[in-house]
Design a protein around this nucleic acid. Structure first.
Lengths: 163, 163
DNA sequence: TATTGTTATACTCTATAACTATA
DNA sequence: TATAGTTATAGAGTATAACAATA
């Protein structure tokens, strides 16, 4: 019955996996597709943010500050799953561009609370618009329902990471 | 009617996005979840392969050689979406471990065809088993149907990358 | 003792340019 | 000229250890 040769898609959708030939194919691994898709997205996001002189990680940090006025840098690191040591240079760059200000917490002198400036809020909105435009291109083959389900499935994978 | 407070999941599933408050949340971006899920997977894959002294990229390269005996290094780079320059040290390590051999193509002296050794085939099988065990853990919250659909959705995202 | 912000350092992955040899 | 394999180098992201100030 199958007149056409077995395509990659056929193989992927066949998870019965006959015992004769072990599935030694990289393409059956979801982690492989996760990585390729993530790199594809990252490249697009880098290109989208290039015009406004930022990159995905700094943009995520600014968005986190705008969404959570008064967060500390340690808070951001826990939320984004990064090391405290690695946010220092990112914050100092965003601060140098006047996108947020630091205020020492009167209740705990160790903590610097971060507040977006008006300019920071506007830039965050610009970054978000550029990222969403990039996503629309990247996900053009996916219906709205598929995008929503993809987001839900991905969230299930990493939902127990620290947070 | 909604007695419970709006959870993150509710927000994510609400893509109607009222005009009052712009969706300036990082969590609506699929790219963000893609990145977090991919990092989560990568960490697990690194841990899974640690006992056999390899890492995800070298493992992928060996698997590609085993799946395609006689490929060239440039072929592998095109298939995996990596730079030719970056595969050199990986190949020299795998070769040093006796996992594959190089044979200059008699028809084109520029090309080295790569063939797995018996030991390489066995190691590839081990790598694959470890990666699949890791994926089973990572995807425990997803049904078989969800895993299959996730793989399909991810493949749609990067399917036009070079290849 | 634990946490915050910070410095210094190292490793992986990725990217680019340039070389050689072959075609 | 175009491609294969290689070398060298640089940048981003990530990771750990250690420190001073504060709790």
């Amino acid at each position: 019955m199958p007149l056409k040769p077995k395509s990659t898609e056929d193989v992927l959708q066949d998870n019965t996996c006959s015992a004769v030939e072990p599935p030694e194919k990289l393409e059956v691994l979801i982690g492989y597709h996760l990585r390729r898709a993530s790199i594809h997205d990252l490249n697009g996001a880098v290109a989208a943010l290039n015009d406004v002189n930022t990159r995905p990680v700094p943009a995520s940090v600014l968005l986190t500050i705008v969404e959570n006025p008064g967060v500390s840098s340690a808070d951001i690191c826990r939320m984004l799953g990064m090391q405290r040591a690695n946010i220092v240079s990112i914050l100092s760059e965003l601060e140098g561009r006047g996108l947020f200000v630091r205020e020492t917490d009167p209740a705990d002198q160790r903590i610097q609370k971060l507040y977006p400036t008006r300019h920071g809020q506007e830039e965050a909105k610009t970054f978000m618009a550029l990222l969403q435009a990039h996503e629309d291109t990247m996900l053009q083959r996916l219906s709205a329902a598929e995008r929503q389900q993809l987001r839900m499935l991905l969230a299930k994978i990493w939902q127990d990471d620290g947070v």
